[in-house]
């Protein structure tokens, strides 16, 4: 079971991320996690938000180029070796990771994983008995 990640195309220009954050906050949308991928002239902001469909609609109305992407959202214990175990499980089952980002709070850690084959990725995670979040 995957969840939708919101990807936003951004020029490398001061204040652009701020524009996205402000626009979302105006409509009461909360960001759970985000990461920024950058090249020399543009970046891709990847967000996990409270209401992804609405967030996409709002940003489109503000002329942003956005796209929804399937990602796996996995939770694990916030302790040494927990992530290594998940990654090993994926790698043993030949799941290739395109990118991922993670954050921890308290004794829990959250990992967002994007793979070329999301169905297989989720299936493998479930078979290894990891906690794949269905809905935020």
């Amino acid at each position: 079971m995957t969840i939708k990640q919101l990807s936003v195309f951004l020029e490398n220009k001061r204040g652009r991320i701020n524009e996205v954050a402000k626009t979302l906050s105006k409509h009461g949308i909360n960001m759970h996690a985000f990461s920024m991928a950058e090249t020399t002239d543009f970046g891709i902001l990847r967000l996990i938000v409270s209401d992804v469909e609405k967030a996409a609609e709002i940003l489109r109305a503000e002329n942003f180029a956005v796209m929804l992407t399937d990602v796996a959202y996995v939770t694990c214990h916030n302790e040494s070796g927990a992530l290594a175990e998940i990654l090993e499980c994926l790698s043993d089952n030949e799941v290739f990771i395109e990118y991922m980002y993670a954050f921890a709070e308290g004794d829990k850690a959250n990992v967002v994983i994007r793979s070329g084959d999301m169905n297989k990725c989720v299936q493998v995670l479930k078979e290894c008995k990891y906690d794949v979040v269905r809905d935020l």
Partner: peptide, 15 residues
Amino acid sequence: EVRRDFFNDDIGRML
């Protein structure tokens, strides 16, 4: 300007 429909989350495709 990249057209909205052609934006992709995959950096490789954008490059």
